[in-house]
Nucleic acid binder design. Structure first.
Lengths: 121, 121
DNA sequence: CAGGATCCGTGACGATACTG
DNA sequence: CAGTATCGTCACGGATCCTG
């Protein structure tokens, strides 16, 4: 999915659909939900670990997505003063409020996968 | 958000994260969830009605998104043979299985909006 | 190790005009 | 009314190189 910070034109949309839009604005992008997911299930991780855990992501994207998530106070960034710098990322309390939502998404996704699998044989 | 049908490289990702990916592949795109949402809450609608209900969407995008949703059997398309052609769209039974997920997304979105609102004053 | 800078292709998305 | 065709833009996102 791809979002633009486009010209809001809220001519007359109900609060329900504005809410959907708010969520999607954050969740959109190939990675954010996956990052949150990983952080939610695996706890505190370093940059390199995330790079490995999140599967296909590249360093540039990971960095960018993490910054956005940090701005939205969904993840916390901690710099450790080790020899070669290390940075740890973890979910904030606020980030945890997404758990129910992520869980529903995961659940539907796995059901959907089953369905697709059945059809393709 | 923006997805590519990129080269699956499932080197070692858990089923959980594959599930998230499956969902996001469908939900990604600025509009799909909103369309499902509208259809879910308002029932059967014609093309023009959707064009109005979904807020900022254009005809081209709406058309394209609907086709994809139809392919995934999430919505049903019905052509009525009226004088000027009319087409009606409605959620399929399968599409209704997304309800819980959409509802969680909506819920979190509205909470998030409250939070943003508080901070901006 | 973390992550910024740069270069670059592809495609998501929009506006407009057109057809049955 | 319900789309399709065409065209253009710019963000997404990958690869590579570079630094503290």
């Amino acid at each position: 999915m791809r979002l633009k910070k486009k010209t809001e034109i809220p001519h007359e949309c109900s609060k329900v659909f504005m809410a959907i839009r708010d969520s999607m604005e954050l969740l959109s992008g190939k990675w954010k939900i996956q990052i949150i997911g990983v952080l939610l299930y695996k706890g505190t991780l370093r940059f390199m670990d995330l790079l490995r855990e999140v599967d296909g992501i590249g360093a540039k994207m990971l960095s960018k997505e993490l910054q956005e998530l940090e701005l939205n106070e969904l993840v916390k960034r901690t710099v450790c003063n080790t020899k070669p710098i290390t940075v740890e990322y973890e979910i904030t309390e606020y980030g945890k409020t997404m758990k129910a939502m992520i869980s529903e998404i995961t659940h539907w996704g796995s059901e959907h996968r089953k369905r697709i699998f059945k059809k393709s044989r």
